[in-house]
Structures are given as C-alpha cells and as structure tokens.
Amino acid sequence: MMRPAAGHWFLLPWFLGFFGLTLGPALASLVLSFTAYDLIEPPRWVGVANYVRIVTADSKLAESVRITLLYVVLSVPFKLGFALAVAMVLNRGIAGLSVYRALFYLPSLLGASVAVAVLWRQVFSGDGLLHQALLLVGIHSPSFVSDPDYAIYTLVALSVWQFGSPMIIFLAGLRQIPRDVYEAASLDGARRFQQFWRITLPLLTPVLFFNLVVQTIDAFKAFTPAFIISGGTGGPINSTLFYTLYLYQEAFGYFRMGYAAALAWLLVLAIAAVTATAFLTARRWVHYEA
C-alpha cells in the first residue's frame, strides 16, 4: 500500500481535535471538578467538596434532577408510542407514504430551532393559541408556561410533538419484517392484536431498543426549549429547570466552573448508567434473531 507516513498527515486534524478538544478537556474537567474556579483566581483544590455539595447541600439541584427525570420518564414513552403507532399505520401500504412521512417528520426537523421554541411559548401563554382554542369550547385555561404546575408539560408536549425521527426508524424496522410471517399467522387464526404482540413487537425490539436509548440520552441533554420558554431562568419557581440549564447557570451565570464540571461528570455517569442498564437488560427483551 501507500507510504506509511501519509497516514499520519491525514490524521493530523483529527489528532489535534481528539487530544486538544475531546480527550484533554474531558480529563481536565475531571480534575476541575475537584477544584473551585471562578475564571479570575487560579483554581483552588477543594477535594470532594463539590460532590459532597451535590449530594447533600443543594436543594435547587435536587429539584432540577426531579424535573429532568420527570421530563425523561414522561416524554420518551409518549414520543415512542406515537412514533410506533403512526409508523404502523404508514406501513400498511398506504398511498402517498413519502408525503405523510415528510409531514410527520417536519416538527422533528424544525423542533431544535429557537423559532419553534418561541412559537411554543406563545401557544401555551396566558392569551396564546391554545387558550383561545379552549375558550371556543368554553374552557378558561391558565397560562401554561407561567404556571409551575403546568410548565413542564408544555416541554413534554414539545418533545412528543417531535416523534418524527423515531417514527422513521420504526418504519425502516417494520419494512424488514417479511410479509409472509403475518400471512402465516393469520392463516393460523392470529388476530391483529395478537399479531402485534407476538410478531411485530418482538421483531421490532432491536429498533425499539435503539430508539429508547437515543431518545433517553437526548431527553437528558435537552436545553434550548427550556431556556427559551423560561427566558433562561428555569422558572416559574424552577419548574422547568432542566439539569443542563442548571449546569449552564452555575457555569456561565455564577462562574462556578469547578462545581459545573462536577455536575457535568455526574450527568455523564447518569447517562452511562442508563445506557449500561439498557444494554444489560437487553438480553432479556431484545430479540436479535429474525
């Protein structure tokens, strides 16, 4: 093959990025998490003080963790449920499949933008679109975004609304299931409902597993919608204080870089734990044979 030296030149950009922007910073943030650092004074070693504060003395963080978990637990199942339901309807050999698929995917495509977040804020505000629509049927609704009891659900709704990308993955998975499996099953007298539980769902578990892991990780990392809808505060009364938003406030609002680094590592550990649990339990419910 070619001159061996060339390989190293081709890899140079990646090499710089890997050590300078990924591995180096990842290790640095681990060290930083044992310090107090406000960007002005040099970092001061504080041992495990940041972690002790995380576990014992930060009630705002506890609230933030609760909100984030609530968001993950509510948004992921509903999102995947809608995605699977719509994918199954689309998979029944419907004419205009690609048009429907594009329409249902649009919210996912646009959902990450600030444009959609500001729209969402209007829709769920005190005199917003939903309020007007509910007035037509005689319901006087509160301002969802400024009511601490409801604000988080507007974010859940925003996430569920973007079921398009898991739907596309489900659809790709459904198309892999051979038609004759269903034909054989209906000859044996299996009804639709049984076919779903006995054939579709088991054969779809690898795709379901993939969607579950990806969407859960994404939900843990959600930031922009909560930032825009709460105006950067995580309010009202911390009811939309996503973990990432709290981390942002600690780092770039109060410049507690050491504490924020500890928070970041905790998030990584949480995500790693969730992913590891998914993979460890996969053996019991994910069927890889076709």
């Binding site: 990842a26 780092a251 998030l267 990584v268 995500i271």
Partner: peptide, 14 residues
Amino acid sequence: MIPYQVTLIPQYIL
C-alpha cells in the same frame, strides 16, 4: 460516547 457537557467547560476555558 462522550457527551459535549464533559468537554464544554475546559473547552470554554481554553
């Protein structure tokens, strides 16, 4: 596998 939050703060300092 490494989420950007881990590299975020040292990158910012850099």
